[in-house]
Amino acid sequence: MKRQVPLALCFLFGVAMIYTQFSPHQYSEAVYNEVIKWGLIISPFALVLAVVTLIQTHTSRIRFRSEHWQYSFIVFIGMIVMVAVGLFFVPNWLLNLLPENVSTALADVQIGPQNPVFVWLYDNVQVPMDATMFSLLAFFIASAAFRAFRARAFEATLLLITAMFVMLGNIPVGDLVWNKVISWLPLPESWVLLEDGTSRMEDGASWLRQEILDVPNTAARRGIILGVSLGVISQSIRIILGIERSYLGGGD
């Protein structure tokens, strides 16, 4: 019974949600929107559990003096300060219900997300830290590219050459370099000249970069997307039919 009911519900809602994708009827749309809302209702309850686990994790780190346990204090300080500033947020509907002098006084204090301290902390702590992490990506890309482009095998060499052309097309001086280099090559004029009289090799680096991105790159991406889409359908059918049930917490 513990398994049958969730599986039956999964089947019922799975089929219903598939049907809503093929039915434009207002009742079908209403069912879809309602189910999405139910999903949103579950989130706050799960968040409470998540915050409890976060507190437990850091409390035990402090208690057992794990490595770098001091940083757990920063987690608690950050959490308490932001919650304290954010918790006293009074929504507009409540302000309207309160006596005028009280609501005016509260509005003047600017509590909640409008609080200058809250905004300052967000803008000067959270945003720069996020930006710092994101900026690190540039260095990581460089180090990953360095490893990936080492010409150890035929495929890696091919990747290196292709990447060189793409990078050349991405930089402003790329076309200049390309035009100089290509002018030394004895290319047949019939191939170089386009129907409108312009040269195929003019801004050739940009052209080649775009060709690489538009043709082989797009073809490979579409292949992956097709496989992923079929995989998603297959996985969904397995879940709806109750064959794939490990997400319920076990094999049977």
């Binding site: 990936a148 997307i225 992923v228």
Partner: peptide, 23 residues
């Protein structure tokens, strides 16, 4: 299954499940 992140994983990881292999 995020095709934009696959090149990063291929470059940095020992093994990568590409798209449908994950499913």
């Amino acid at each position: 299954d995020s095709e934009h992140q696959l090149p990063f994983f291929i470059a940095a990881c020992d093994y990568t499940l590409i798209g449908e292999e994950l499913y």
